[in-house]
Write a protein that binds this DNA or RNA. Sequence first.
DNA 1: TTTTGAGTTGTTCGA
DNA 2: GTCGAACAACTCAAA
Length: 460
Amino acid sequence: MASLVWFRNDLRLNDNPALSAACEGGEPVALLYILDERAGAASRWWLHHSLTALARDIAAKGGVLLLRRGDPLVIIPELAAALDVNAVHTARAYEPYWRETDRALDAVLKKQDVALHRHLSTSLFPPARITTQAGKLYGVFTPFAKACLAAGVPGGSAPAPARINGVQAPSEALEDWDMLPARPDWAGGMRAEWTPGEAGAHGRLEVFLAGPVQKYTTARDIPGVGGTSKLSPHVHFGEISPRYVWHRAGAGAETFRKELLWREFSLNLLWQHQQLRTTPIRPEFTAFPWAPDAAALRAWQRGLTGVPIVDAGMRELWATGWMHNRVRMIAASYLVKHLLQPWQAGEAWFWDTLCEADEAANGASWQWVAGCGADAAPYFRVFNPVLQGQKFDADGAYVRKFVPELARLPDAVLHQPWAADAATLESARVRLGTDYPYPLVELTAGRPRALAAYTKVRGG
DNA sequence: TTTTGAGTTGTTCGA
DNA sequence: GTCGAACAACTCAAA
């Protein structure tokens, strides 16, 4: 008898309970990855490299990673029958697509007398484990986080199996999946920034723990400083387990740990609101007076809104497949509140351009910014991108890096080039409207316009 | 059941 | 220049 490990967003050998369970007795193990066709372009780039690393790591242990495309409900039962498999091991998932698939797969496999085991692997706690005293799921972050801390994040992690008794079976070639951009090759900035795969994930964690974690509470808000962990894509793809990160970070890293709890909270929201990516949690927001404008959306996507901190963020995203958290909030708030574009349009763009595009975190965060989330900010909380830029990018390092055409502007006007006088612009060699756009909307007009729109939703 | 306290990340205005 | 209040009302979670 053999068993089968179905890898999803748990692309690692260490602390991977599905893999450990399958390898326990030393019996033959088939290791399978089925392409997730819903992945966006940046995620596919990541996936290509992560799978390359995983296949290499597996081969070093004597196993082989089988790559397939198609319907898991067809592929897995067929493979199980062909290889005389009696147990399938995989990671528990929260996404509605996976929940549906798992339900159906369980039924199909049962008919073949094959057991489907789903292991806790991608989150700190099992879905729906953290509940209120009344047994309901949380909708507010702070009490949710307190309940997580009270429950205690379980420790103990399984080491990578010493040896994998791999089973050979037909596999596709990763290159045939065409997940790397060729014409044009836009991944140069991503190659420079990231090392997808389990080793890269651990490397990133160790760098973070060796220094930045100590100043995380304040430095994480300064996008010009490498103060964040940059673990998000690694954790998303499961190259490193969130429990491992939690325990390695230690009790002193409370602020950092809280970010892991935010991830957990988003998963909890997705469990409750399966249409999180598209449907507002607060139903009254379906009637929000958005003003869809393809040109405005495109300018935002390209980093040509005329607001430096927003454009810097959008260009960082485009170049590296990631954006600093503080800037995400500013750029998202600008799209939704100043430009009045539907948050779903922003969510879709992030889905395609973020390496770590995650159904739970992306959906929950966009809803939070838009004000329609379960735990939303007050409607009047509208980020002023000039103030935010001056506060968090005071020395302009971030804007100058990603918006180089403004690099020669003095700090005083860097975050609002439209306020610079002619002589300053000239000496900085900036021609507004030519080298860099005028703002799409006047900030002073954008705020009241946003507030008025929000008043409507409130029935005012 | 009712009550009470609280809710990631902000901005503006006026004293 | 600094500081506190106002900006709404509602829902959630727990006592």
